[in-house]
Protein backbone atom coordinates (compact mmCIF):
# COMPACT_ATOMS: atom_id res chain seq x y z
CA UNK A 1 0.00 0.00 0.00
CA UNK A 2 1.34 3.45 -0.95
CA UNK A 3 1.18 6.52 1.26
CA UNK A 4 2.20 10.05 0.32
CA UNK A 5 4.20 11.74 3.06
CA UNK A 6 6.85 13.63 1.12
CA UNK A 7 6.69 14.81 -2.50
CA UNK A 8 9.81 12.74 -3.16
CA UNK A 9 7.74 9.60 -2.52
CA UNK A 10 6.62 10.21 -6.11
CA UNK A 11 9.03 9.78 -9.01
CA UNK A 12 9.33 12.42 -11.73
CA UNK A 13 7.52 9.99 -14.05
CA UNK A 14 4.64 9.57 -11.61
CA UNK A 15 4.33 13.35 -11.25
CA UNK A 16 4.17 13.64 -15.03
CA UNK A 17 1.39 11.03 -15.08
CA UNK A 18 -0.55 12.90 -12.38
CA UNK A 19 -0.22 16.17 -14.29
CA UNK A 20 -1.39 14.51 -17.50
CA UNK A 21 -4.35 13.02 -15.64
CA UNK A 22 -5.22 16.39 -14.06
CA UNK A 23 -5.07 18.03 -17.50
CA UNK A 24 -7.45 15.39 -18.84
CA UNK A 25 -9.81 15.82 -15.88
CA UNK A 26 -9.93 19.56 -16.57
CA UNK A 27 -10.60 18.93 -20.25
CA UNK A 28 -13.41 16.40 -19.74
CA UNK A 29 -14.65 16.36 -16.12
CA UNK A 30 -17.75 14.32 -16.96
CA UNK A 31 -15.61 11.30 -17.81
CA UNK A 32 -14.42 11.22 -14.19
CA UNK A 33 -17.61 12.06 -12.33
CA UNK A 34 -18.35 8.49 -11.26
CA UNK A 35 -14.95 6.78 -11.16
CA UNK A 36 -14.75 6.69 -7.33
CA UNK A 37 -18.39 5.91 -6.61
CA UNK A 38 -18.69 3.90 -3.39
CA UNK A 39 -15.30 5.07 -2.08
CA UNK A 40 -14.91 7.19 1.05
CA UNK A 41 -12.28 9.84 1.76
CA UNK A 42 -11.69 10.76 5.43
CA UNK A 43 -10.30 14.26 5.95
CA UNK A 44 -8.61 14.34 9.35
CA UNK A 45 -7.66 17.95 9.98
CA UNK A 46 -6.13 18.38 13.42
CA UNK A 47 -5.30 21.95 12.40
CA UNK A 48 -7.61 24.42 10.65
CA UNK A 49 -7.48 24.74 6.87
CA UNK A 50 -9.76 26.09 4.20
CA UNK A 51 -8.30 25.41 0.78
CA UNK A 52 -6.62 22.10 1.39
CA UNK A 53 -9.54 20.45 3.16
CA UNK A 54 -12.20 21.82 0.86
CA UNK A 55 -10.23 21.00 -2.27
CA UNK A 56 -9.72 17.42 -1.06
CA UNK A 57 -13.44 17.14 -0.36
CA UNK A 58 -14.37 18.78 -3.63
CA UNK A 59 -11.96 16.45 -5.44
CA UNK A 60 -13.52 13.31 -3.95
CA UNK A 61 -17.08 14.52 -4.52
CA UNK A 62 -16.20 15.38 -8.14
CA UNK A 63 -15.05 11.78 -8.60
CA UNK A 64 -18.39 10.48 -7.34
CA UNK A 65 -17.03 9.43 -3.92
CA UNK A 66 -18.08 10.47 -0.43
CA UNK A 67 -16.30 12.28 2.39
CA UNK A 68 -16.30 12.27 6.17
CA UNK A 69 -13.97 13.74 8.77
CA UNK A 70 -13.31 16.63 11.11
CA UNK A 71 -11.88 20.08 10.57
CA UNK A 72 -10.17 20.81 13.88
CA UNK A 73 -8.65 18.81 16.70
CA UNK A 74 -11.23 20.18 19.15
CA UNK A 75 -14.01 18.29 17.37
CA UNK A 76 -12.13 14.99 17.38
CA UNK A 77 -11.04 12.53 20.05
CA UNK A 78 -7.62 14.23 19.99
CA UNK A 79 -9.22 16.75 22.36
CA UNK A 80 -9.72 13.86 24.79
CA UNK A 81 -6.08 12.91 24.48
CA UNK A 82 -6.35 10.18 21.87
CA UNK A 83 -3.08 9.43 20.11
CA UNK A 84 -2.58 9.83 16.36
CA UNK A 85 -1.89 6.11 16.07
CA UNK A 86 -5.20 5.15 17.75
CA UNK A 87 -7.16 7.67 15.68
CA UNK A 88 -5.75 6.28 12.43
CA UNK A 89 -6.20 2.68 13.55
CA UNK A 90 -9.93 3.36 14.02
CA UNK A 91 -10.68 5.81 11.22
CA UNK A 92 -8.96 3.70 8.58
CA UNK A 93 -11.62 1.06 9.17
CA UNK A 94 -14.32 3.58 8.16
CA UNK A 95 -12.89 4.77 4.84
CA UNK A 96 -10.85 3.92 1.75
CA UNK A 97 -8.32 6.76 1.85
CA UNK A 98 -7.24 9.40 4.37
CA UNK A 99 -6.04 12.98 3.95
CA UNK A 100 -4.48 14.13 7.19
CA UNK A 101 -3.21 17.48 8.45
CA UNK A 102 -1.56 17.83 11.85
CA UNK A 103 0.38 20.64 13.55
CA UNK A 104 3.12 18.25 14.69
CA UNK A 105 5.87 17.35 12.24
CA UNK A 106 5.94 13.68 11.34
CA UNK A 107 2.36 12.95 12.51
CA UNK A 108 1.29 11.49 9.11
CA UNK A 109 4.30 9.17 9.16
CA UNK A 110 3.13 7.87 12.54
CA UNK A 111 -0.41 7.68 11.19
CA UNK A 112 0.41 5.64 8.10
CA UNK A 113 2.08 2.97 10.22
CA UNK A 114 -1.30 2.39 11.89
CA UNK A 115 -3.59 2.81 8.91
CA UNK A 116 -5.09 0.03 6.83
CA UNK A 117 -5.75 2.47 3.93
CA UNK A 118 -3.52 4.95 2.03
CA UNK A 119 -2.66 8.13 3.93
CA UNK A 120 -1.96 11.45 2.22
CA UNK A 121 -0.04 14.06 4.18
CA UNK A 122 -2.10 17.24 3.89
CA UNK A 123 0.51 19.25 5.83
CA UNK A 124 2.48 18.43 8.99
CA UNK A 125 3.56 21.54 10.89
CA UNK A 126 6.42 23.35 9.18
CA UNK A 127 7.57 20.14 7.54
CA UNK A 128 5.96 18.88 4.30
CA UNK A 129 2.87 19.56 2.23
CA UNK A 130 3.15 17.32 -0.84
CA UNK A 131 -0.29 18.01 -2.33
CA UNK A 132 0.39 21.74 -2.30
CA UNK A 133 3.59 20.92 -4.18
CA UNK A 134 1.66 18.86 -6.71
CA UNK A 135 -0.66 21.85 -7.10
CA UNK A 136 2.37 24.11 -7.57
CA UNK A 137 3.87 21.77 -10.16
CA UNK A 138 0.63 21.60 -12.13
CA UNK A 139 0.47 25.40 -11.99
CA UNK A 140 4.04 25.79 -13.21
CA UNK A 141 3.49 23.33 -16.06
CA UNK A 142 0.22 24.91 -17.15
CA UNK A 143 1.36 28.52 -16.80
CA UNK A 144 4.91 28.28 -18.16
CA UNK A 145 4.72 25.05 -20.19
CA UNK A 146 7.93 23.62 -18.70
CA UNK A 147 9.96 22.71 -15.62
CA UNK A 148 13.49 22.82 -16.99
CA UNK A 149 15.57 25.99 -17.03
CA UNK A 150 13.36 28.07 -14.73
CA UNK A 151 14.63 30.67 -12.25
CA UNK A 152 12.41 30.41 -9.21
CA UNK A 153 12.32 33.18 -6.60
CA UNK A 154 11.05 32.04 -3.20
CA UNK A 155 10.15 34.95 -0.96
CA UNK A 156 9.13 35.35 2.68
CA UNK A 157 9.16 32.67 5.33
CA UNK A 158 11.60 30.12 3.98
CA UNK A 159 12.30 28.68 7.43
CA UNK A 160 8.87 27.41 8.47
CA UNK A 161 7.28 27.50 5.01
CA UNK A 162 6.62 23.83 4.35
CA UNK A 163 5.37 24.55 0.84
CA UNK A 164 8.73 26.11 0.03
CA UNK A 165 10.67 23.10 1.33
CA UNK A 166 8.60 20.66 -0.67
CA UNK A 167 8.72 22.78 -3.83
CA UNK A 168 12.52 23.04 -3.65
CA UNK A 169 12.77 19.27 -3.19
CA UNK A 170 10.53 18.68 -6.20
CA UNK A 171 12.01 21.28 -8.56
CA UNK A 172 15.59 20.27 -7.74
CA UNK A 173 14.99 17.17 -9.86
CA UNK A 174 14.65 19.17 -13.07
CA UNK A 175 17.44 20.43 -15.33
CA UNK A 176 18.77 23.96 -15.34
CA UNK A 177 16.63 25.14 -12.44
CA UNK A 178 17.96 28.06 -10.40
CA UNK A 179 16.68 29.24 -7.01
CA UNK A 180 16.68 32.79 -5.68
CA UNK A 181 16.04 32.71 -1.93
CA UNK A 182 14.59 35.97 -0.60
CA UNK A 183 14.02 36.21 3.15
CA UNK A 184 14.95 38.11 6.29
CA UNK A 185 17.88 36.62 8.20
CA UNK A 186 15.63 35.00 10.82
CA UNK A 187 13.52 33.18 8.23
CA UNK A 188 16.25 31.78 5.99
CA UNK A 189 15.93 28.37 4.41
CA UNK A 190 17.08 25.63 6.87
CA UNK A 191 20.65 24.66 6.07
CA UNK A 192 19.89 20.94 5.68
CA UNK A 193 17.35 21.66 2.94
CA UNK A 194 19.84 23.91 1.19
CA UNK A 195 22.52 21.27 1.54
CA UNK A 196 20.44 18.26 0.52
CA UNK A 197 18.38 19.65 -2.33
CA UNK A 198 20.43 22.53 -3.69
CA UNK A 199 24.15 22.24 -2.93
CA UNK A 200 24.49 18.47 -3.21
CA UNK A 201 22.65 18.48 -6.53
CA UNK A 202 24.92 21.22 -7.86
CA UNK A 203 22.01 23.61 -8.38
CA UNK A 204 22.72 27.28 -8.85
CA UNK A 205 21.23 29.56 -6.18
CA UNK A 206 21.53 32.98 -4.63
CA UNK A 207 20.32 34.43 -1.35
CA UNK A 208 19.28 37.98 -0.59
CA UNK A 209 16.98 39.98 1.64
CA UNK A 210 15.72 42.47 -0.95
CA UNK A 211 12.86 41.58 -3.28
CA UNK A 212 13.46 44.66 -5.46
CA UNK A 213 16.98 43.48 -6.28
CA UNK A 214 15.80 40.31 -7.98
CA UNK A 215 12.38 41.16 -9.44
CA UNK A 216 13.71 41.31 -12.97
CA UNK A 217 15.53 38.00 -12.98
CA UNK A 218 12.92 35.45 -11.86
CA UNK A 219 10.56 33.44 -14.07
CA UNK A 220 8.44 32.47 -11.08
CA UNK A 221 7.98 34.48 -7.89
CA UNK A 222 6.65 32.21 -5.14
CA UNK A 223 5.40 34.43 -2.33
CA UNK A 224 4.68 33.05 1.15
CA UNK A 225 2.95 34.33 4.25
CA UNK A 226 4.83 34.74 7.52
CA UNK A 227 2.79 32.27 9.58
CA UNK A 228 1.78 33.44 13.04
CA UNK A 229 1.08 29.84 14.14
CA UNK A 230 4.74 28.81 13.65
CA UNK A 231 6.11 31.35 16.14
CA UNK A 232 6.46 30.72 19.86
CA UNK A 233 7.08 34.42 20.37
CA UNK A 234 4.49 37.01 19.25
CA UNK A 235 7.10 39.78 19.18
CA UNK A 236 9.15 37.96 16.56
CA UNK A 237 6.05 37.45 14.44
CA UNK A 238 5.06 41.12 14.60
CA UNK A 239 8.59 42.22 13.71
CA UNK A 240 8.79 39.96 10.66
CA UNK A 241 5.26 39.76 9.31
CA UNK A 242 5.53 42.73 6.96
CA UNK A 243 9.00 41.92 5.61
CA UNK A 244 7.83 41.72 2.00
CA UNK A 245 4.86 43.25 0.26
CA UNK A 246 4.50 42.71 -3.47
CA UNK A 247 2.69 45.63 -5.08
CA UNK A 248 1.96 46.95 -8.58
CA UNK A 249 5.05 49.15 -8.48
CA UNK A 250 7.35 46.17 -7.87
CA UNK A 251 5.60 44.21 -10.63
CA UNK A 252 6.79 46.84 -13.15
CA UNK A 253 10.32 45.49 -12.79
CA UNK A 254 9.27 41.88 -13.42
CA UNK A 255 9.57 39.97 -16.71
CA UNK A 256 6.52 40.16 -18.96
CA UNK A 257 6.01 36.40 -18.80
CA UNK A 258 6.89 35.95 -15.14
CA UNK A 259 4.24 34.37 -12.91
CA UNK A 260 3.40 35.12 -9.27
CA UNK A 261 2.41 32.13 -7.18
CA UNK A 262 1.24 31.90 -3.54
CA UNK A 263 -0.03 28.84 -1.66
CA UNK A 264 -2.63 31.09 0.06
CA UNK A 265 -4.03 32.24 2.40
CA UNK A 266 -2.61 35.67 1.72
CA UNK A 267 -2.58 38.29 4.45
CA UNK A 268 -0.91 41.42 3.13
CA UNK A 269 2.21 40.13 1.37
CA UNK A 270 0.59 40.62 -2.03
CA UNK A 271 -1.33 43.84 -2.54
CA UNK A 272 -4.84 43.25 -3.95
CA UNK A 273 -3.88 45.65 -6.77
CA UNK A 274 -1.69 42.86 -8.16
CA UNK A 275 -4.66 40.47 -8.49
CA UNK A 276 -5.76 41.88 -11.83
CA UNK A 277 -2.26 41.51 -13.34
CA UNK A 278 -2.41 38.50 -15.71
CA UNK A 279 0.92 37.33 -14.25
CA UNK A 280 -0.75 36.83 -10.85
CA UNK A 281 -1.83 33.21 -10.98
CA UNK A 282 -2.46 32.35 -7.31
CA UNK A 283 -6.21 32.02 -7.67
CA UNK A 284 -5.80 29.80 -10.74
CA UNK A 285 -3.22 27.87 -8.68
CA UNK A 286 -5.83 27.25 -5.95
CA UNK A 287 -8.26 26.03 -8.61
CA UNK A 288 -5.69 23.58 -10.02
CA UNK A 289 -5.38 22.08 -6.52
CA UNK A 290 -8.73 20.37 -6.89
CA UNK A 291 -7.80 18.67 -10.17
CA UNK A 292 -4.40 17.42 -9.11
CA UNK A 293 -5.95 16.02 -5.91
CA UNK A 294 -8.55 14.24 -8.05
CA UNK A 295 -5.72 12.68 -10.04
CA UNK A 296 -3.87 11.74 -6.83
CA UNK A 297 -6.92 10.18 -5.15
CA UNK A 298 -7.51 8.08 -8.28
CA UNK A 299 -3.90 6.93 -8.33
CA UNK A 300 -3.81 6.03 -4.65
CA UNK A 301 -7.09 4.14 -4.87
CA UNK A 302 -5.81 2.25 -7.89
CA UNK A 303 -8.46 3.77 -10.18
CA UNK A 304 -6.70 4.22 -13.49
CA UNK A 305 -9.45 4.66 -16.05
CA UNK A 306 -11.91 7.38 -16.88
CA UNK A 307 -15.40 6.48 -18.13
CA UNK A 308 -15.20 4.83 -21.51
CA UNK A 309 -11.45 4.07 -21.36
Amino acid sequence: MRHLINILDLSVGEIDELIARADDIMARPDAYSEVCRGKILATLFFEPSTRTRLSFESAMLSLGGSVLGFSEAASSSAAKGESVSDTLEVVSSYCDIIAMRHPKEGAPLVGCAHSSVPVINAGDGGHYHPTQTLTDLLTIRRETGRFDGLTIGLCGDLKFGRTVHSLIAAMSRYKGVRFVLISPDELKLPSFIKQEYIKERGIEYSQCSSLDEVMGEVDILYMTRVQRERFFNEEDYLRLKDSYILDAEKMKAAKRDMIVMHPLPRVNEISTAVDSDPRACYFRQAKYGRYIRMALIMKMLGVDRAKGE
Binding site: S83, V84, S85, H102, P103, K104, E105, G106, A107, L109, V110, D124, G125, G126
Partner: peptide, 9 residues
Protein backbone atom coordinates in the same frame (compact mmCIF):
# COMPACT_ATOMS: atom_id res chain seq x y z
CA UNK B 1 7.11 20.65 16.98
CA UNK B 2 7.91 16.98 16.44
CA UNK B 3 5.17 14.38 16.89
CA UNK B 4 7.46 12.53 19.32
CA UNK B 5 6.96 15.42 21.77
CA UNK B 6 3.32 14.42 22.37
CA UNK B 7 2.56 10.95 20.95
CA UNK B 8 2.74 8.28 23.66
CA UNK B 9 4.57 4.97 23.25
Amino acid sequence: RCITSCEQD
